[in-house]
Simulated scan of single mutants.
Amino acid sequence: MGADDKYLDLFENAPCGYLVIGADGRIQDANGTFQRWTGFSKEAVCGKRFREILNVAGRMFYETHFAPLLRMQGFFEEVALDIVKADGDILPVLANSLEQRTPAGDVIETRVTLFRATQRRRYERELGEAKRQLEQGLHSAQQTAELREQFIAVLGHDLRNPLASISAGVHMLARNTDPSDEKVAKVLRLMLASIARMSGLIDNVLDFARGRLGGGLGLTRDRGKPIQPTLQQVLDEIRSSYPERQIDVLWNLDGDMIEVDHVRLAQLFSNLMGNAIAHGDPETLIQVTGKFSEGFFDLSVANGGKPIPQAALQRLFQPFYRGDAKGRQQGLGLGLYIASEIARAHGGTLDVVSDMEQTRFSFRMPIS
């Protein structure tokens, strides 16, 4: 086979379609590969304009985008087009085109190579369908989440009324019970502690729902009230509910008239104390420190026990993360999340450090 025959064979049987388009815009030659792919004979396709073998959408894009681009820069690459075959079926292709010009810039001919893109187009369609289904799934998940949070908000609100009735009944029994009857008094104390804990859980649920539904945690700041009595009241309630736990306290809050939401601060402190009770070693002290230092209010709660695993530290302030709480301290896993939101609402931070010696939660906020 001579050199001319080799080049002819390369043109006719190349693994891609070849078209040669004259200066008048009409197809002058089409290789054998193109003919086999499309079912057109050379005689049937020669004389046609390139746009005539494209589908309607392809014609529009070719005339408005690719032909002007070819005129301007003399080539285009990897253009997705659909060839209409002789039997009317569609052949998806990727087209590269290059103009041959005279030194004066006049077009001699345009060479077009076509590569089958059936698999690529199928992949693109499947990818588009997967994206559409994913977007639908995300939309559905978002709707479900919103509905769930609305349900939580309604549930938390509706639980308050029966709990208030139970609390009123227990307090009435406590007033009318013989104080010398230690057994009954102990049961009533446990009931009051459970009511207080349930009330705290409902508050956490409502705060969570309010934050997720866009209301955020509202603050009512007050500068005319010292904060130590607020913290001490929480501490007294914890000691009453858990008399067996040893709590060491260090207050250094002289001149403590700072602008803070006392109800929210008490909630934050109560959640930190509840966490220490739930996860700390019952044989070790819980250490509480509150102080003013260099323009900041610092409050920390530390307990002994096993350190928090590093993986758990990353999730500690996420909602519904419960750790390994046991017994009566099992809850919804919202306490630390709500505490961190209260800290953030005050412009402060809530951090944790945990090692073999102790686990310490520290709230810090700037004093305005």
Rank of each mutant, 00 (worst) to 15 (best):
R26A: 08
R26I: 05
D29W: 06
A30Q: 02
G32D: 06
T33C: 08
T33K: 11
F34A: 02
R36T: 11
W37F: 12
W37E: 13
T38V: 08
T38Y: 03
G39S: 09
G39M: 09
G39H: 05
F40Q: 04
F40S: 04
K42N: 05
E43N: 08
A44P: 04
C46F: 00
K48C: 14
R49L: 01
R49V: 01
F50I: 14
R51D: 14
R51N: 09
R51M: 12
E52P: 01
I53F: 00
V56I: 11
V56N: 07
A57G: 07
G58P: 05
G58E: 01
F61Q: 11
F61H: 13
F61T: 12
T64S: 13
F66I: 12
A67C: 04
L69A: 11
L70M: 12
M72N: 08
Q73E: 07
G74F: 05
G74R: 06
G74N: 07
F76D: 07
E77S: 10
E77H: 10
E78Q: 13
V79S: 03
A80T: 02
L81W: 03
L81I: 08
I83W: 00
V84N: 02
K85I: 00
K85G: 00
A86R: 15
G88L: 09
D89T: 15
D89M: 10
D89G: 10
I90C: 05
L91M: 15
P92Q: 06
V93I: 15
L94P: 01
L94G: 00
A95R: 00
N96E: 06
N96P: 02
S97C: 15
Q100V: 13
R101W: 00
R101C: 07
P103H: 05
A104G: 10
G105I: 10
D106F: 03
V107Q: 05
V107W: 02
V107F: 00
I108D: 05
R111Y: 11
R111V: 14
T113C: 09
T113W: 05
T113M: 12
T113A: 12
L114E: 05
L114G: 03
L114V: 13
L114H: 00
F115G: 00
F115S: 12
F115R: 14
R116A: 09
R116M: 04
R116T: 02
A117M: 01
R121W: 02
R121I: 03
Y123R: 13
Y123M: 13
Y123A: 15
Y123K: 09
E124A: 13
R125Q: 14
E126L: 12
L127E: 11
G128C: 03
E129V: 04
E129F: 06
K131N: 12
R132T: 10
Q136H: 09
L138Y: 07
S140T: 13
S140G: 06
Q143P: 00
Q143V: 14
T144F: 10
T144R: 13
A145W: 08
E146Y: 03
L147V: 11
L147G: 01
R148K: 12
Q150Y: 00
Q150E: 06
I152C: 06
I152R: 09
G156H: 01
H157N: 14
H157F: 13
L159N: 10
R160C: 04
R160I: 06
P162N: 09
L163C: 07
L163T: 11
L163E: 05
A164W: 05
A164K: 12
S165M: 09
S165F: 07
I166A: 15
S167I: 01
A168G: 05
A168S: 14
